[in-house]
Design a protein around this nucleic acid. Sequence first.
RNA 1: GGUGGGUUGGCCGAGUGGUUUAAGGCGCUGGUCUCGAAAACCAGUUGGGGAGAAAUCCUCUCAGAGGUUCAAAUCCUCUACCCACCA
Length: 420
Amino acid sequence: MLDIKFIRENPDLLKQAISKRHYNFDLERLLKIDEVRRGLIKEVESLREEQNKASENFSKEKLEDLKQLKDSLQKKEAEFTKIDVEFRRLMLLVPNIPDPVVPEGKSDEDNVEIRRVGETKNFNFKIRDHHTLLRELDLVDLERGTKISGFRGYFLKNEGALLSMALWQFAFDYLIKKGFTPFIAPSLVKENIFVETGKLPLFREDLYATDDNLFLVPSAEIPMMGYHENEILQEEELPKKYVAFSPCYRREAGSYGKDEKGIYRVHEFMKVELIILCKAEHQESVKWHEEVTRYSEEMLVALGLPCRVVINCVGDLPFGFVKMYDIEAWIPSEKRYRESHSSSIVHDFQTRRLKIRYKSHDGKIRFAHSLNNTAIATPRILQSILENHQKENGSVEIPEVLRKYIGKDVITPRSSKNVS
RNA sequence: GGUGGGUUGGCCGAGUGGUUUAAGGCGCUGGUCUCGAAAACCAGUUGGGGAGAAAUCCUCUCAGAGGUUCAAAUCCUCUACCCACCA
């Protein structure tokens, strides 16, 4: 949510943002309602003042006057409530303003490359794609996954399971060294937190709901942003740097037919996510954004995965975000980079809804800025790891940094394994 | 699942319809005193909203929502959470 005062004072900026996003929103109507609402606040409050004063000097003779006063106050309050409900409904539909550097565009195809990191390998043999490697190395069971979970279901097994846990542990270890506090976050979360993080009321079709008014989170961003809901922090406490593991659930509505095979696009996956709460300055947000994006790149480099960073175009920029980078890992079989990470600047869009504030050194209370960034997402990243580290004989070398967690160097094909 | 008790400011805690502008204490901040500190004393100390150039004024905020009343921390209803006991 944006500040209504900001909207009121910068209607043109917001109009630009709305048209840049090709978003349908009647700003004039919001501004009109804001004006009417403020007029009603004034009227209601002056009636209350009158009533407070009259009640202090209560006498039985004036009872009839007081009753009339109460009556007109209640009518005015009802009028206000009606406008206020509409005002708040509209405020939840106002999108965040994209950073001026965000390029125009409709979909991820219009994202713009910023840099490439690492060298793509030239294989001097015919490479296997990750579907083949997963099958031959017996790392995933899609048939039984579908039997149990339905479409896009999967079981990770053998080194597929071990590699996943090693990746989470690797990401945790790496980020703890960078000063992040580790968490395991809840993945069943109340509706209001989804509203406050900007995932509702729009985009309900992307979420799994339960019968208990709880929703399954698409990212630990949701519970971790809720963590400090309704709190006032001290400026010295910032930045808050959190790294959280959680299962993630996405209905992938509207992606029928996309990536139907394999483990790239699934309904349930695991993710290590980091969030940062920092001072309410754009430069501070930018600084941390660049910083945490680099952490993710460094982890990919350590895993031996070439990648590139793209800046997402407006069409691929979520409703509440200001600026987003995707990091895409190299997929040798497709000869292209594919999204494995997202790193975003949110400014105070979520913290304003969540009422996460801090008291700054000048004594003012401000809404903190927030950022979120993928540290590692499994099983998606396995695709890139398996393909990039495959050898001619069909085995896959385990990235050096993960070996200590798994206790072996190479994953060998099932045929040469002693499988029970 | 059932019954009872509870939820008050940063913290503890008083308060059962109208001088409560929420007593008192602790903590914190500033000041006086002091070479400096402690103690003592004085003052300040939740957060939101509206009007205003500002000073300031008004309004809401006692778990949350609604209700009764001229008037609600206080009475009523519902919800959430905590504690105890029962099944």
